[in-house]
Design a protein around this nucleic acid. Sequence first.
DNA 1: CACAACTAAATTGCACACAACTAAATGACT
DNA 2: AGTCATTTAGTTGTGTGCAATTTAGTTGTG
Lengths: 165, 165
Amino acid sequence: MTPTPNPGPVTPEAPGPAGDWLHLDQQICFSLQSASRAFNGVYRVVLKDLGLTYPQYLVMLALWEHGTLPVRKLGEHLRLDSGTLSPLLKRLEAAGLVHRERSARDERSVEVRPTEEGLALRERALDVPRRIVTATGFGLDEIQGLKARLDRLTTALDTAAANEA
Amino acid sequence: MTPTPNPGPVTPEAPGPAGDWLHLDQQICFSLQSASRAFNGVYRVVLKDLGLTYPQYLVMLALWEHGTLPVRKLGEHLRLDSGTLSPLLKRLEAAGLVHRERSARDERSVEVRPTEEGLALRERALDVPRRIVTATGFGLDEIQGLKARLDRLTTALDTAAANEA
DNA sequence: CACAACTAAATTGCACACAACTAAATGACT
DNA sequence: AGTCATTTAGTTGTGTGCAATTTAGTTGTG
């Protein structure tokens, strides 16, 4: 046994206004992650029929919109690097939804193109957005407002991380 | 070659107000994930000295506050199941920060207790919250407001996922 | 041309998340 | 006491994220 068998609740040493600060970071970040994971849960249910995960759905959305994209551009759109995209794209290719081939102009680049089957899948995905928006219980204005705040937050955090590194 | 060598931009078939809907789900969820991952990036930098990942930091926060918790309670606090917690706690134990032992009252339960070293680590973590809040560039009121919206969103999404399943 | 600096993907290694399953213990009920 | 549903952790397998490294191709410069 340690000197303190059960340490018990440890109160922040600053009971004043600093106390409000103390777990705020955890609270906001945790709420953020919880919301993100809750979204993922809804997408998992909704995308199950399509056989897609949420990141895979994002890739297909990008391809449905742009037709063909090099891996690098996909990564910029989705904020993902090749370490994440390479295996993900390999799975999409194995599922017959995309095709990958080296660019002729630049042999370093790999062009990702949706297959016929990949394009056809779009029809079955058309009602996904409405179902998701409905699931949030939020109005369109509210969603836009929240999105604006989140984007501002992301910019600030990215800047801070770059400066602290 | 397919009938459409390069499908090109595919516009949503509804150019009207429904068009606003169409990628809103992607936009809000994506903004949410981006913010969450940006937070993670800042935490990664800030927690590097402590040798903790963000989920591990959350576990230590819970233990610093409550002293000792069974795995189940930890899971409830952090919204994580044993599939995630078991290996994570094993790593924390290997790092000497926590101790695990079967409960005497209920042999099914495993009590997680911070070690002396784990408790000592708290001192070095005291300035983490302030650094994180600073990194957001948000005021306290703004954080609270955002958190309230996110928690409401999470509740709605959880309910929807449960009903759709 | 030679060669260094740069770029794009892929690979490797680690750490979550989460579904599905297993094993052990508990509780309820007959 | 015996049996069965429930509870609690742990395990296994899949799929991200991301840092660090590797490989191959490209570009700029002397």
